[in-house]
């Protein structure tokens, strides 16, 4: 029973320990390549959030909060949005809101298409942190409910 409270079985925990880094890395890859292949800030952000949610499901919320707690997540969420708006506003200097004023570079290279990778990164902060917070909040409700029953 005590084992149950602190997360799932040892199989799940071991697999999680092995895969969670890969999931996070894959999320970062999707974000970084968002402008040259399918994916981008939203999809990558979701995968990044999933890696933290994975830890939370397998080990319980305490272990997950050691890696990323609500305060940090909410900070990243706001920062992501502010970076996005700032980048969009920088375009006004060049004439238009959202103007992509950086050099577009060569197509299909990692460093290309001007501001779009930066937008992707900002969105991934926002989405990753936001989704993590949503799941945490929905889970916290459940936990308080169980406490009341006991």
């Amino acid at each position: 029973m005590k084992e149950q409270q602190k997360g799932m079985t040892i199989i799940v925990k071991t697999i999680t320990r092995l895969t969670v880094g890969l999931i996070l890395l894959f999320g970062i890859y999707i974000v970084a390549n968002g402008h040259i292949s399918p994916g981008g800030g939203f999809a990558g952000g979701v995968i990044i959030a999933l890696s933290f949610i994975h830890i939370m499901l397998a080990f319980g919320k305490e272990d997950a909060f050691k890696k990323m707690n609500q305060g940090v997540a909410s900070f990243f969420e706001s920062i992501g949005a502010i970076i996005f708006i700032t980048l969009a506003n920088l375009g006004i200097a060049g004439g238009y809101f959202f103007l992509n004023f950086l050099s577009k570079g060569e197509p299909f290279k990692l460093f290309s298409s001007g501001l779009i990778p930066l937008y992707n990164i900002a969105i991934s902060f926002k989405v990753g942190a936001g989704l993590f917070i949503i799941v945490v909040i929905l889970m916290l409700f459940k936990i308080t409910k169980e406490d009341e029953k006991k």
Partner: peptide
Amino acid sequence: TALIAAIAIRVYE
């Protein structure tokens, strides 16, 4: 959906 689910859980509480 997330917002409505959160509200529904609070309603249940």
